[in-house]
C-alpha cells in the first residue's frame, strides 16, 4: 500500500470511530456498542503489548536471556502466586504476593507524605502579616503590604475553618464551631465552583482538538484538498 493510502485509511478510521463514539450522545445504540467493544478489545491488546514492549522485554527478558541475569527467572514463580486465586486450597498464596505490594506501597507513604506536605505546612505556617515588603515576585500580583497581610490572614481563616469542617471526633455544637465549619463549607463551595469553572476550559480544548481533526484533517485536507 502506498503511504498516502495508509494515511487516508487512518484518517477514515479516525472519523468513523469519532462519530461512532459521539453517537452515544443521542442514545445508546448498536453503532456505539460496536465501537465500545472494539475499543475494549484494542485497549486490552494494547495493554498486553505495552506490558511486553515497555516493561517485560526491557526489564525482564533482555536482562535474563541476553545480559545473563538468570535469577530473574524467579519472577515467574512469584508472579504465579497471583494466579493461585483460582486454586481452592492455595488461594492464600495470592495474598502473600499481594501483601508484598501492599507493604511496599505503605512503606513509601512516609516519603510521599514528607515530600508532599512538609513544604505545604511550611508555607501555611510562615504566612507573614507584619512588616511585609512590597512584594513584586512572580505570582504575587504586586500586592501592597496591607493587602498581602489581609490575604494571608484570610488564608489562615479559610485553612482553619475548612479543617474544622472535617473534624469527626466531636459533635459540632455550641456557638463558635458550627459557624466556623459552616464558613468552611461555604469556602469549599467557592473552591469547587472555581475548580468546575476552570476545568471547562480544559474540556473544551479537547473538543476543539477533535473538531479540528474532523474539520481540518478530514473535510478540508482530505475531501476539499485545501491546505
Amino acid at each position: 500500500m502506498k503511504e498516502e493510502t495508509v494515511k487516508l485509511i487512518v484518517i477514515l478510521l479516525g472519523v468513523a470511530s469519532t462519530l461512532g463514539i459521539y453517537s452515544i450522545l443521542y442514545k445508546e445504540n448498536k453503532v456505539f456498542r460496536f465501537f465500545e467493544h472494539l475499543y475494549l478489545g484494542l485497549a486490552a491488546g494494547y495493554s498486553i503489548s505495552a506490558a511486553w514492549n515497555d516493561i517485560l522485554r526491557p526489564q525482564w527478558w533482555t536482562l535474563m536471556m541476553i545480559e545473563g541475569r538468570w535469577w530473574m527467572l524467579f519472577a515467574i514463580p512469584a508472579a504465579m502466586m497471583f494466579y493461585m486465586i483460582y486454586s481452592k486450597q492455595n488461594s492464600w498464596m495470592s495474598r502473600l504476593i499481594f501483601g508484598l505490594f501492599l507493604g511496599a506501597t505503605a512503606g513509601q507513604t512516609f516519603q510521599a507524605f514528607a515530600a508532599d506536605y512538609f513544604p505545604k505546612f511550611r508555607t501555611a505556617a510562615s504566612k507573614a502579616v507584619m512588616d511585609l515588603p512590597e512584594v513584586n515576585q512572580p505570582g504575587a500580583y504586586g500586592l501592597t503590604p496591607f493587602s498581602a497581610a489581609l490575604n494571608n490572614v484570610l488564608f489562615m481563616v479559610i485553612l482553619a475553618s475548612v479543617m474544622t469542617y472535617f473534624f469527626f471526633s466531636f459533635e459540632q455544637k455550641g456557638k463558635v464551631i458550627p459557624s466556623v465549619s459552616k464558613f468552611g463549607r461555604y469556602t469549599l463551595m467557592v473552591a469547587f465552583g472555581a475548580l468546575f469553572g476552570s476545568t471547562i476550559m480544559a474540556r473544551m480544548s479537547l473538543l476543539i482538538g477533535r473538531m479540528y481533526f474532523l474539520i481540518h484533517d478530514f473535510v478540508q485536507v482530505q475531501l476539499l484538498h485545501m491546505q
Partner: peptide, 27 residues
C-alpha cells in the same frame, strides 16, 4: 506496520481522544 497504523493511530488514538472529549458535552 500498516496494521499497527490502522489499529493504533487510526482507531485506538481516535477512540481515546474522542472519549476524552465527550466530557465537553457532559460538562
Amino acid at each position: 506496520h500498516q496494521l499497527n497504523e490502522f489499529a493504533y493511530s487510526g482507531l485506538m488514538k481516535s477512540l481515546d481522544a474522542t472519549m476524552f472529549s465527550i466530557i465537553a458535552f457532559y460538562i
